[in-house]
Amino acid sequence: MHRYANPSRFIRIADTIFPWAGGIMITAFAIGLYLALLKSPADYQQSEMVRIMYIHVPAAWMALFTYAFMALSSAAVLIWKHPIALLSAKAAAPIGASFTVICLATGSLWGKPMWGTWWVWDARLTSVLILLFLYLGYIALINAFDETERGGKAASLLALVGAVNLPIIKYSVDWWNTLHQPASVFRLDGPAIHPDMLWPLIIMAIAFKMFLLTTLVTRIKSELIAARVQNVQRSLHGNLADGRG
């Protein structure tokens, strides 16, 4: 386990991942946006409005995926006291919160013309709003102390407890009557989306996933170097104190 806890090793891995993930991200966004905005057909019911789906749905998937990553990292923090796991979860939280904001905002922009409302308190929309609050709560807790380690335990516990919200979000549309429609892609009897619309969605989903990867390795590396900066600062202060004494 602690083989991966070596910061220099992680920074080397991050430096290898970054250009690849970034390259795939740019390519996928270029193809995905071309397909989503120009090539894909209008929907038989929602006409052009369907194009919001190509950002709303990947953002929603990534909001859940990023939270799952954060919760698993937090479990590693609580069980193994793994320092890089804590930094990974800390680095992931703002990214997940951003995905959630995009999901909620684009959903609102989609809901107004189609459903006839910006917002309703149905089970799906409410549980996704709770997801945003969980992200914000985590960010607040982990930044509450100067030393990440101290806020880390409380924040990790919150992230782990909040994970019960993930299945609730996913199945809210099946368990309760909601305004939001049930799943179109991940269903037992196969996607209910025509291939001409499924492909742009998949490629945009890849782009979003690569965005997570590039931003995540950047932020983790940043956290690791910040930790080093703190170490060097501490040793410098120590030296100065020794010199004076």
Binding site: L37, E48, I52, K112
Partner: peptide
């Protein structure tokens, strides 16, 4: 114009 939905669609893409 996106069939009358331009404002909603472009706002969503711009925001993202």
């Amino acid at each position: 114009g996106m069939g009358g939905y331009g404002a909603f669609i472009w706002a969503a893409y711009l925001l993202a």
